[in-house]
Amino acid sequence: DWREIAKLAEEALKKQQPVTVNGQTFNDPNEIKKLLETAQKAI
């Protein structure tokens, strides 16, 4: 669910920690931002 992904990505950016989505881990803040943008577009 994109809403859940957006929430996870936002928290990861705030806490500056990696986030795992669908078994894929994102460590890079730039990648997390991209993930968040993608999720927000999909909602």
Rank of each mutant, 00 (worst) to 15 (best):
L35S: 01
E10G: 05
N22T: 04
K33F: 06
K41P: 03
K14P: 02
Q17E: 11
D1H: 09
D1Q: 06
E37R: 03
N22W: 05
N30Y: 13
F26P: 03
K15R: 12
A6M: 13
R3F: 14
L8C: 08
T38Q: 14
P29T: 11
T38V: 14
L36E: 02
V19T: 04
E31M: 10
L35V: 07
R3Q: 15
W2M: 07
D28F: 03
T20I: 14
N27C: 04
A39F: 03
D28V: 00
L35A: 04
E11R: 05
A9C: 13
N27F: 15
V19L: 12
K33E: 11
V19N: 01
D28G: 07
P29I: 11
L13S: 03
I5C: 03
E31V: 10
G23I: 00
E11T: 07
F26V: 11
Q40P: 02
A42Q: 14
L8T: 07
K14W: 02
L13I: 13
K33P: 01
K41T: 11
K34W: 05
L35D: 02
K33S: 10
E31F: 10
K41Y: 00
I5A: 05
V21D: 00
K7Y: 11
A12F: 02
N27S: 13
K15S: 15
D1G: 10
L35H: 02
F26M: 12
A39H: 04
K7N: 10
Q16F: 11
I32N: 02
A6Y: 08
E37S: 05
I5P: 01
I43V: 11
Q40S: 11
L8S: 07
N22L: 12
K15P: 02
F26L: 13
T20D: 06
F26Q: 04
K14Y: 05
F26N: 03
Q40R: 15
T20A: 07
A42G: 08
Q17H: 13
Q24H: 14
K7I: 13
I5H: 01
P18I: 08
T20Y: 11
L36A: 05
I43T: 08
T20V: 13
L35W: 03
W2H: 07
L35P: 01
A6G: 06
D28I: 00
D1R: 08
E31T: 09
K34F: 06
R3T: 15
K34N: 12
N30L: 15
A12E: 03
V21A: 07
E37Q: 05
K41M: 08
V21T: 06
L13Y: 02
A42H: 15
E4M: 03
A12K: 01
P18A: 13
R3M: 14
I5V: 10
N22Q: 10
T38M: 14
V19S: 02
A12L: 02
L35F: 01
Q40K: 15
Q40I: 15
A9P: 00
P29A: 13
D28E: 11
A42I: 12
A42W: 04
L36S: 03
T38R: 14
L36G: 03
I32D: 01
Q16H: 14
K7D: 10
A12P: 00
L36V: 06
L36W: 09
I5N: 02
A6T: 08
I32P: 01
K33G: 09
L35Q: 02
P18L: 05
A6C: 10
K34G: 07
Q17I: 14
E31L: 10
A39C: 06
I43S: 08
Q16T: 08
R3K: 15
T25R: 09
F26T: 07
K14L: 13
R3P: 15
L8G: 04
E11A: 09
W2G: 04
K41N: 14
T25P: 06
Q40E: 11
Q40H: 11
E4Q: 06
A6Q: 10
Q16G: 15
T25Y: 12
V21Q: 02
A6N: 00
K34S: 11
K34A: 12
V19I: 14
A39Y: 01
L36Q: 04
K7C: 08
A39R: 00
P18N: 08
R3C: 15
T20F: 10
T25M: 12
T20W: 08
L35M: 09
T20C: 08
L13N: 03
V21S: 03
A6S: 07
R3L: 15
I32Q: 02
V21R: 02
L8H: 06
A6R: 08
K7L: 12
K34E: 13
L13K: 03
E37K: 04
A42D: 05
K33V: 12
D28Q: 02
N27Y: 15
N27R: 13
K15L: 14
K34L: 13
K33M: 11
P18C: 09
P29K: 08
E37D: 14
K15A: 12
T38N: 12
A6H: 08
V19F: 02
E37P: 00
A9D: 01
F26Y: 14
G23R: 03
K15G: 12
E10K: 08
N22C: 12
I43A: 08
V19R: 00
E4A: 04
E10W: 04
N27Q: 13
P29N: 08
T25V: 15
A39L: 07
K14F: 05
T25Q: 13
N30R: 12
E11P: 00
V21P: 01
L36P: 01
K41A: 14
T38D: 12
D28M: 00
T38H: 13
W2I: 06
K34Y: 04
N30W: 12
W2A: 07
L8N: 08
Q24Y: 06
A42N: 13
G23S: 06
D28T: 08
G23N: 08
A6W: 04
A42F: 05
P18S: 10
K15W: 06
K33R: 15
R3H: 15
P29L: 14
P29G: 07
Q16W: 08
G23T: 04
V21E: 01
A9W: 05
A12C: 04
I32G: 01
A9Y: 08
E10M: 07
Q16P: 07
N30C: 13
N30I: 14
L36K: 02
I32W: 00
K41R: 13
K14Q: 15
